[in-house]
């Protein structure tokens, strides 16, 4: 961690608005990119971002200056997104009656898609799949960790991940056809 960012954090802890704004400007783009992956739309992404940064500044004094500050903020953002998700109680929903088939693939289609395309596809997932896919595939959490974070079984986490992947493949295929 650079000396500069530490100074900015310390000033922010003291309530210096300019320092807080600087911290926000430094991380807001990346954090909004994270939020938008967990949210169903821009409005929700903005709310997660705002709620998350309010928590960051309220708890900034607890940051021990060990490890990455960006990683600390990122965890707060993920937790904020999960809090909203848990409140809406998505995990108990079931779609057992829906048959998803693994589509025959052209994996190389993936390399042709832009980040915006991928973002759009991931946001079209239902919340429980979107969250598990984000946590596992992008954030790198294990199924055990995800099961604890979301209060679900590891089996459910694996099942949701599998179905999320299937849906993503189906959407990518459809996107390719229409494109």
């Amino acid at each position: 961690m650079s000396r500069d960012i530490k100074d900015v954090i310390r000033e922010s802890i003291k309530g210096d608005r300019a320092a807080q704004k600087l911290l926000y400007d430094t991380l807001a783009g990346k954090m909004y990119g994270l939020c938008i992956r967990y949210a169903r739309d821009e409005t929700e992404a903005r709310e997660i971002l705002q709620d998350g940064f309010v928590k960051v500044f309220q708890h900034l004094g607890k940051f021990r200056f060990q490890g990455s500050f960006e990683g600390w903020v990122r965890r707060i953002m993920v937790n904020t997104a999960l809090e909203r998700f848990r409140k809406e109680d998505h995990m108990t929903a079931s779609i057992e009656d829906i048959d998803f088939q693994d589509p025959p693939g052209r994996e190389n289609i993936l390399s042709e898609l832009s980040a915006q395309d991928l973002l759009q596809i991931i946001r079209e997932l239902s919340p429980q799949y979107r969250v598990v896919f984000n946590l596992y595939a992008i954030e790198g959490y294990s199924h055990k960790e995800i099961s604890q974070m979301l209060n679900i079984s590891e089996g459910t986490s694996k099942s949701n991940l599998s179905r999320a992947r299937s849906i993503l493949q189906e959407r990518i295929k459809r996107l390719n056809k229409t494109g």
Binding site: K21, Y24, D25, A28, G29, K30, M31, Y32, G33, L34, I36, R37, E42, R46, L49, Q50, F53, V54, F57, E107, L110, S111, S114, A115, L118, L119, I122, F133, Y136, A137, I138, E139, G140, L161, S162, R165, L168, Q169
Partner: peptide, 27 residues
């Protein structure tokens, strides 16, 4: 599945999206 995971991780893990301009004022 792992291939999909990798592609999404590479493209989206550090995705930088400009937040709404007035988001800071409310924070």
């Amino acid at each position: 599945g792992k291939h999909i995971d990798e592609v999404f991780r590479e493209r989206l893990s550090d995705l930088n999206v400009t937040p709404p301009t007035d988001a800071w004022s409310e924070i």
